[in-house]
Design a protein around this nucleic acid. Structure first.
Length: 426
RNA sequence: GCUCCCAUCGUCUAGAGGCCUAGGACAACACCCUUUCACGGUGUAGACGGGGAUUCGAAUUCCCCUGGGAGUACCA
């Protein structure tokens, strides 16, 4: 959330009235509620060993029966418990599903209204009495979240649909504790392009990785917001605030969605283009460290960014887009050499350019005029303007494509330009 | 295996019985613009998974099948 520039009202780092907010600092508040459940009869001690449990599961698998805990510790007598304890066994505490279900519902069916999926149901007989406190005294997830939500007055729980089955367990605990059950909303999962879980294999998975690669937080937020939701006005480009204002939880689609980079990339380049130039200059700096930025005046740097920002998909693309703005010499790409510089026309153009440009003033306005006239001369000889410019571009930038030539020449200045032209002449 | 969730163009989605000859965005393709690349503009192609049922009428309701996803821990 920090990487995306999102903030929160209450929680770790900033505190709030219901702290502590760090799980490890809350350990001593859970036993009290475990005891309450024990006292009310909604929980019981279980002395089963991992081996015994494993055997039960195996048995169930052999009989092709779904596994649910057998509840064999549910009705242990005090003597039996004492005996087990004397053997050095430490009990875990299990939640008594059936007891809670029966106390608050007519049948073994548990229903709740999900904010995005509508009414959901589950036969709680199939759930199995789960552990709420491990034998080492630490609470399990399903129990701890309920206590935390209850104590922190949580009203809405919005999470992935992989939590649906936990919800039934959690609701029963809320009820057993006499607490108010919060509203739940379960979102579809975001899948990788091959429909599997998103993972390292599919590229970046942590928000910070996207940011490092040069995705703008604005684009990231906007794109993810559109996964499973669409704005009522059809306007897809939206700021966080606009999204927040327009957002309605019941407009969320309940199906899974696939994370494809195409639209994210498009959106990112869109946001890059929209960025204020000074802002963009600042954001681009981390990707230009391999160049000596002090070679350029601030005005030149501004101009360079202006003419190279168009095709950028990621901020990091700037690195490969601008090498020819720096240094005296330039690397010539193979394609530029063989397909352009090695041709007769190109050599002719370069010689002629060298002759004429000696007397030019290298301001952008002037260059624009001069180049136009220069192209016209060749056009008369039947050489396409495109070809004329190619020769100059290849010699000066070492490439066959790139930013606006007038701007490039103006930024480089007469000396570097003519130097590179000379070097390209055979 | 069992349980639950989901199902419209390649992708994200609009669509809550007639407004749908199914709309938009990204990607693709074509053309235009152009000093290259790109931006931009204009177009083209592209989907209701299958089968039943209800109805005068179904992408929209119901059932079955199929497909995909998730859960099934003394993990969170």
């Amino acid at each position: 959330m920090k990487a995306l520039g999102l903030d929160w009202d209450e929680g770790p780092d900033i505190g709030g009235p219901y702290g502590p907010y760090t799980q490890s600092e809350r350990f001593d508040i859970y036993p009290k509620y475990v005891q309450e459940l024990l006292d009310k009869g909604y929980a019981y001690e279980c002395f089963c060993t991992p081996e015994e449990l494993e055997a039960e599961k195996q048995q169930a698998a052999e009989n092709k029966k779904p596994y649910v805990y057998t509840k064999k510790c549910e009705n242990l007598t005090e003597e039996e418990k004492a005996k087990l304890r004397s053997e050095g066994r430490k009990p875990a505490i299990r939640f008594n599903i059936a007891k809670a279900q029966k106390a608050f519902h007519d049948s073994s069916m548990l229903y709740f209204d999900d904010l995005v999926k509508g009414q959901l149901h589950m036969n709680t007989d199939l759930l199995g009495d789960f552990v709420i406190m491990k034998s080492n005294g630490s609470p399990t997830y399903n129990f701890a979240v309920v206590i935390d939500d209850m104590l922190m007055n949580i009203t809405h729980v919005i999470r992935g649909e992989d939590h649906i089955s936990n919800t039934f367990k959690q609701i029963l605990i809320f009820e057993a504790l006499g607490a108010e059950v919060p509203k739940f909303g379960h979102l579809g999962m975001i899948l990788a392009p091959d429909r599997s879980k998103l993972s390292k294999r599919h590229g970046a998975t942590a928000v910070s990785e996207f940011v490092e690669k040069g995705y703008l937080t604005e684009a990231l937020i906007n794109f993810v917001a559109l996964l499973g939701w669409s704005p009522s006005d059809g306007q897809e480009i939206k700021s966080v605030n606009e999204i927040a204002n327009d957002f309605r939880i019941n407009e969320i689609s309940s199906s899974n969605s696939i994370f494809e980079y195409d639209k994210l990339n498009w959106m990112n380049s869109h946001y890059i283009k929209m960025l204020d130039i000074e802002d963009l200059k600042t954001r681009l700096k981390p990707y230009l460290t391999k160049y000596n930025l002090s070679e350029l005046t601030d005005a030149q740097y501004t101009r360079m960014v202006e003419v190279t920002k168009e095709p950028l998909t990621l901020l990091s693309d700037i690195t490969d887009a601008v090498p020819y703005f720096f240094g005296t010499d330039v690397d010539i790409e193979a394609k530029a050499q063989t397909e352009v510089l090695d041709t007769e026309i190109a050599q002719d153009v370069l010689n002629e350019f060298l002759k004429q440009a000696e007397s030019w003033e290298f301001s952008e306005e002037n260059l624009h005029e001069k180049l136009e006239a220069f192209r016209a001369q060749y056009k008369e000889k039947g050489i396409k303007p495109k070809v004329t410019m190619w020769a100059i571009r290849a010699a000066v930038t070492g490439r066959t494509c790139g930013a606006d030539m007038t701007a490039i020449l103006a930024i480089l200045g007469k000396d570097k330009t003519l130097y590179r032209i000379k070097k390209a002449i055979k």
